[in-house]
């Protein structure tokens, strides 16, 4: 969209940093502030920066709408599936205690899986919204 060299170079530098920060927020959410919802938005904003600088067509090549739509569902299924795992292990739905060897490690893995699910859904939904809006704006 924009042929500004500065924008392109800065975006190329920024996008990996934003993605890295998003991942950090997901996996560090247990220790510091942050969590999956915020991380999802941060990851989506990386795609949005990409879209603003390189144009929606280029972003569609990187992240096709069908893939984003599928990922949004995958995130929900991952969350729900984690609950089903604990059901299969004989506990209540979304009770993470039996997933690990001890209750605490079970909670750890359960929360991690659930957070990753949330993150995937939020990120792909936000990116999907922005992409679809951009398409509408152009036409």
């Amino acid at each position: 969209m924009h042929d500004s060299l500065i924008l392109r170079v800065v975006a190329k530098f920024l996008i990996p940093v934003i993605v890295l920060f998003g991942l950090y927020v997901v996996f560090h959410g247990k220790l510091g502030p942050g969590g999956a919802f915020q991380a999802g938005v941060i990851l989506a904003s990386a795609l949005i920066v990409h879209m603003l600088v390189f144009g929606p067509d280029e972003t569609r090549r990187v992240a096709p709408v069908a893939v984003l739509r599928g990922l949004a569902a995958v995130g929900v299924l991952l969350y729900g599936g984690t609950g089903l795992i604990s059901l299969a292990l004989g506990a209540n739905y979304l009770d993470y205690n039996p997933i690990g060897s001890t209750p605490v490690s079970g909670q750890y893995f359960g929360i991690l899986l659930v957070e990753i699910g949330v993150c995937i859904t939020v990120a792909s939904t936000m990116a999907l919204l922005a992409l679809l809006f951009a398409e509408r704006v152009r036409t």
């Binding site: 220790l31 929900v76 979304l94 605490v104 909670q107």
Partner: peptide, 29 residues
């Protein structure tokens, strides 16, 4: 002791209130 995670917000969000958060994700989706 129960969750083993220093950030209480995360443990409330994802474990004690897991059902609510699942609902939120479904709403976003």
């Amino acid at each position: 002791k129960e969750i083993g995670i220093p950030n209480v917000v995360t443990s409330v969000l994802a474990s004690y209130r897991g059902f609510d958060t699942f609902g939120e994700v479904v709403v976003v989706f």
